[in-house]
Amino acid sequence: MSAVLVGISALLSCSAIATPLSEYYAEYQVSRKGEVHGEATRQLSKVAENTYTVRYKSDIEWMIFSDVRTEESLFEVHNDQVQPLHYSMKREGTGPDRDYRVKFNREDKTIHSNQQKYPLDVKWLAQQQDHLSYQVQLRHDLMAGKRKFSYPIIDKKGNQRSYDFAVVGEEMITLPFGNINTIKVKRLYDDSDRQAIAWFAPEYNHMLVKMFKGKDGMEQFQIELKHYQPDSKTTAK
């Protein structure tokens, strides 16, 4: 179940993104097999010119299992490209607690993790993303009309991976507050037994409104938007 929750974790310079990122605060319910087992929040805030943070927090209880985690990414935006500066993840609950941090040093083109003494042994890529910043970039690329997406990611073990996605259609879905038209995006896995699908709502500024993750034909979890506020005046819990 802990591995499942890792997947839950559902985008200062001379040139900024064509349309500045809009601040928001969103609340989700997390369910499994039709039963709600927790909640999650996501908040994007502007902290300086062309500099933002996106914060995700989830609180899950399932049988004797509990998991509370907070992820946060600090990033800048240059020429329509999200550029992460710092990522952190803290997790508490059943099993071992975790505290993971990674810093992107754009001056000397190195990536440092608090899990290792020396810089990570990975190739520096201009489009490098962390576990949250790629979601901001995907949302922006979707708004720009792109249909396929590929992002180099530094995972929590310090490895460099590629996350690939494709738009597979449009769909009206039912959320806790009613029906909404969405764009359906599927993650492309090498392993055909794994499945991850995300739904984004154009009328909600292309917000992530639903996500489903499964394996071997079985649902692992699902998140659904239940409240959206198009600014960040509300502080995430």
Rank of each mutant, 00 (worst) to 15 (best):
L44Y: 04
L44C: 03
S45D: 11
V47W: 01
A48M: 01
A48K: 12
E49T: 11
E49R: 10
E49L: 14
T51Q: 10
Y52H: 01
V54M: 14
R55W: 04
Y56H: 10
Y56K: 07
K57R: 14
S58Y: 05
D59Y: 07
D59K: 12
E61G: 15
M63A: 13
I64H: 06
I64M: 05
F65C: 08
S66V: 07
D67K: 13
V68L: 08
V68T: 13
V68G: 03
V68Q: 01
R69I: 09
R69A: 10
R69G: 15
E71A: 05
E72S: 05
S73D: 00
L74Y: 10
F75I: 01
V77Y: 06
V77I: 12
H78C: 12
H78E: 12
N79K: 11
N79Q: 07
N79A: 12
N79H: 08
D80W: 12
D80T: 03
D80M: 11
Q81K: 10
V82I: 15
Q83S: 05
Q83A: 04
P84E: 02
P84I: 02
L85W: 04
L85S: 00
Y87S: 00
Y87E: 00
S88K: 13
M89G: 03
K90R: 08
E92C: 05
G95A: 04
G95C: 01
P96Q: 02
P96A: 02
D97F: 08
R98C: 06
D99I: 14
D99H: 15
Y100W: 09
R101D: 02
R101H: 07
V102F: 04
V102K: 01
K103L: 11
K103P: 09
F104H: 03
N105Q: 08
E107H: 10
D108E: 04
D108W: 14
D108A: 01
D108C: 04
K109T: 06
T110W: 04
I111P: 02
H112V: 06
N114I: 05
Q115G: 11
Q116Y: 15
K117T: 08
Y118T: 14
P119L: 00
L120A: 02
L120F: 02
V122I: 14
K123L: 12
K123H: 11
K123R: 12
W124D: 02
L125D: 03
L125W: 04
L125F: 10
L125V: 03
A126R: 11
Q127L: 15
Q127P: 10
Q127D: 12
Q127W: 13
Q128H: 06
Q128C: 15
Q129T: 02
D130L: 00
H131I: 08
H131K: 14
S133W: 02
S133Y: 01
Y134M: 15
